[in-house]
């Protein structure tokens, strides 16, 4: 297992290099001179030269990338142009909010999705199956930002159960988590259901029945355990989706977070901050995939053995 972890970590290095190159070049893909777009009206030529030197823009591109990468690896993401703070400090302030929201939304959609999918599979073709899957289909067709607005209107404005916006109380998390998580339930539930029905047809399940195990024990002790393998795969792929959802939902609910920071700094063309946020999102996606793979390897001995 340790060998497997090391191997998967090593595999991430080239991915990280490519991702960092893309994020690095964003600053050069901006129409016009990045310095022009960074300069405030009325800046002097000295200020311009100072900025150019500060960002190392007078050097050849590969050198610039090398410097940027080296600084980044030391934890230095540069200074925010508008907010005039180190980018790392801004990220440190905002990241925990996004992480909390993302993890809760992921946990919510995963748990509800697995339970719903398992119920639908166990009671296949019954009214339980049909109503669960219909509800889920409805939930999944609504975009999360729209759902967020609806939830605000109903539970915050009309009923006053939860705050409309902000992040000061725990109850302020409920609506954003629902808005992001509800849409995710459908996929998890459908994958769980299909996987359970597929696995129920395998030979080894017939043998479990032949051993005299009860139906429940077979469904939840064996079949569901297998069905969780594909669920973990799609979950690790969904980390990016959840974070993307967090970006818009933070904005809708006016919550602090990486998403709000990203959108604000995009509007203000604060490129070092944009780079920093994108880098964090990319790292989160990579870590999500890694964790997904590790969980899968922990659950499935065949995965462990085939990749070491």
């Amino acid at each position: 297992m340790l060998g497997y972890i090391i191997k998967r970590l090593l595999q991430l290095i080239p991915v990280f290099i490519v991702v960092s190159m893309i994020i690095f070049s964003i600053i050069h893909l901006v129409p016009g001179d990045p310095i022009d777009s960074m300069m405030q009206i009325g800046s002097t030529p000295e200020q311009r030269a100072e900025l150019t030197a500060r960002y190392g823009l007078d050097k050849p591109l590969p050198v610039q990338y090398g410097i940027w990468l080296a600084k980044m690896l030391r934890g230095d993401l540069g200074e925010a142009i508008i907010l005039r703070q180190p980018v790392t400090a801004l990220i440190a302030q905002n990241l925990p909010h996004s992480l909390l929201l993302g993890v809760l939304a992921l946990a919510f959609s995963t748990i509800v999705g697995i339970v719903a999918g398992a119920l639908a599979a166990v009671f296949k073709d019954s009214w339980i199956d049909r109503s669960v899957m219909t509800l889920i289909l409805l939930g999944s067709t609504v975009p999360s930002f729209w759902l967020g607005l609806l939830l605000i209107l109903l539970f915050a404005v009309q009923l006053g159960w939860f705050p409309v916006s902000g992040a000061r109380t725990w109850s302020a998390l409920v609506l954003p988590v629902l808005a992001i998580g509800l849409g995710g339930i459908a996929l998890v539930a459908r994958v769980t259901r299909v996987a359970m029905l597929d696995i129920a047809r395998r030979d080894f399940v017939m043998m479990l029945h032949a051993k005299g195990l009860s139906r429940w024990r077979i469904q939840f002790g064996h079949i569901l355990r297998h069905a969780l393998l594909p669920v973990v795969t799609i979950l690790s792929l969904r980390i990016g989706w959840i974070l993307g959802g967090a970006v818009t939902i933070e904005y809708v609910f006016a919550r602090p977070g990486l998403g709000s920071l990203l959108i604000t700094s995009l509007n203000q063309r604060d490129y070092p901050v944009v780079q920093g946020c994108l880098l964090m999102l990319a790292i989160a996606v990579m870590l999500g995939t890694l964790i997904g793979d590790l969980v899968q390897a922990a659950m499935d001995p065949r995965v462990r053995d085939s990749s070491t």
Partner: peptide, 24 residues
């Protein structure tokens, strides 16, 4: 029936490759 299966009547299936739970 469940108390009979595996206890008084046991089955050995056609294909050992697929008749064991692969992750246990």
């Amino acid at each position: 029936y469940r108390r009979l299966r595996g206890k008084r009547i046991a089955l050995i299936s056609q294909n050992p490759m697929t008749s064991l739970d692969p992750i246990i």
